[in-house]
Design a binder for these strands. Structure first.
Length: 412
RNA sequence: CGGGGAGUGGCGCAGUCUGGUAGCGCACUCGGUUUGGGUCCGAGGGGUCGGAGGUUCGAAUCCUCUCUCCCCGACCA
């Protein structure tokens, strides 16, 4: 992509409405723009990151044996009345009516829909286990949306649901998902922790949260010195903990994933059953597994930034390399930067070429701001010496390499 | 929902107390200049001051109502 043709509206100054780093930097880096409280436009640069996260999540879900589906965002009230949540949930559940006056809600989660899908199409233990997931927009009318993408009202979520013949089998599915979550956050390049958690409004009786560690996190987490025990402060129980609270290490985290063993919390009221081998039938045993995909993007920024801007973990970077053409008017410089750009693209290395006729300072600053892992400065000074100057955004390390040669760490 | 702050060109802000018909920086356009960390000079375009009503000869400025955004709290799969 050539920056001269790219819709990347960066901001030099901090937007007044943005207080937290991820919100401020994502606005400044031209990734998102607010539409109204808790709702955002995703611009090209931001969307590339969101897609990167989506794809890694999708690959790991598929690898774990889950199958992707897509359910409607607008859901009929009748299903929510079956589980009692139509009345139980407060204004967070955004209710609307169609032209006939029939009640619907904007889906904050999809247990009802997926359980309905299950009961209408699966009857026997022979058809289980089944894990279904989707990556889709959710809407929760939060009491107080805040911190940009960290707590929006509309956001992107991966939600997965498992169906098993009994609790024992369900625990296997649960564990498969738990391990998939470890694989996902590891692949994303984030520093994260799995902790014991409360089940809250989703229900069920067994639950873990996944947190990206960051000073700005909303949750307090406790760890034991051996790393065996980890819990959300809300869930801390003196009796279950291996040691007193004051001996546990405390860190702040951003909740990006939450998994629940639901058992029959939804299947029972919705009469979603499974015929067992002996001919009897029981409520199917369910689990649900969520990842706040858009929140992951914000959490990554909270965890990886400095005074100059974002520092993307490589797996979720919108582009791997940013080339800075130092002299838009100089033929040799233009030719050299274009050649590098074409070579990198030919090798499948996603590259952004700053081919604008702008000042050096502006180019350097904006490249740091958007946080691509590698920068390559192509200019008359270097070319005269037969080199291009590479910079690693994270370490700040600079390398002068012969024209056309790539940093080893980039190629591997 | 309780408490607090704020709405003035695309962005950041001043002006509001002490009414007189809108200003600065950035961005944008044009010309020149400069060229390795947000160059410099000059010339331009763009807002009627969140909205409605009121007071007044006259309202961004005073009064009333209202909408929106942000922060703290409560809440939060």
């Amino acid at each position: 992509m050539r920056l001269s043709q790219y819709f990347l509206p960066t901001l030099k100054e901090n937007p007044s409405e943005a207080q937290v780093p991820s919100h401020r930097l994502m606005l400044r880096a031209g990734m998102i723009r607010q539409v109204t409280s808790g709702m955002y436009n995703w611009l090209p640069l931001g969307l590339r990151v969101l897609k990167k996260v989506e794809n890694i999540v999708r690959e790991e879900m598929d690898k774990a044996g889950a199958q992707e589906i897509l359910m409607p965002m607008v859901q009929p009230a009748e299903l929510w009345q079956e589980t009692g949540r139509w009345d139980k949930m407060d204004a967070e559940l955004c209710r609307i009516q169609d032209r006939h006056g029939r009640n619907f809600c904007l889906g904050p989660t999809h247990e009802e829909i997926v359980t309905d899908l299950y009961r209408n199409n699966i009857q026997s233990y022979k058809q289980l286990p089944v894990m279904l997931y989707q990556i889709q927009t959710k809407f929760r009318d939060e009491v107080r949306p805040r911190f940009g993408l960290m707590r929006g009202r509309e956001f992107m979520m991966k939600d997965c649901y498992s169906f098993d013949v009994n609790r024992e089998e369900a625990l296997k599915s649960y564990n498969t998902m738990r391990l998939a979550y470890h694989a996902i956050f590891k692949r994303l390049g984030l520093d994260f922790r799995q902790v014991l958690a409360d089940t809250g409004a989703i229900g069920g009786n067994y639950s873990h949260e996944f947190h990206v560690l960051a000073e700005t996190g909303e949750d307090d987490l406790l760890f034991d010195p051996n790393g065996e025990y980890a819990v959300n402060v809300e869930k801390y129980d003196e009796a279950e903990a291996p040691c007193p609270k004051n001996e546990l290490e405390q860190k702040r985290g951003i909740e990006v994933g939450h998994i629940f063993l639901l058992e029959d919390v939804y299947s029972k009221p919705m009469n979603a059953t499974v015929a067992q081998a002996d001919g009897t039938s029981d409520p199917v045993t369910m689990g649900c597994y969520g990842i706040g995909v858009s929140r992951v993007v914000a959490a990554a920024v909270e965890q990886n930034n400095d005074e100059n801007g974002i520092i993307w973990p490589e797996p979720m970077a919108p582009f791997k390399v940013g080339i800075i053409n130092m002299r838009a008017g100089d033929e040799a410089t233009v030719a050299a930067s274009e050649k590098l750009y074409n070579d990198l693209n030919a090798q499948g290395i996603e590259t952004l070429l700053d081919d604008r006729d702008a000042s050096a300072g502006q180019k350097f600053n904006e490249m740091d701001l958007i946080g691509l892992p590698w920068q390559c400065v192509v200019g008359p000074k270097g070319l005269a010496k037969g080199v291009m100057e590479w910079k690693n955004r994270k370490t700040g390390e600079k390398l002068e390499l012969p024209i056309g040669e790539l940093p080893k760490a980039l190629v591997q």
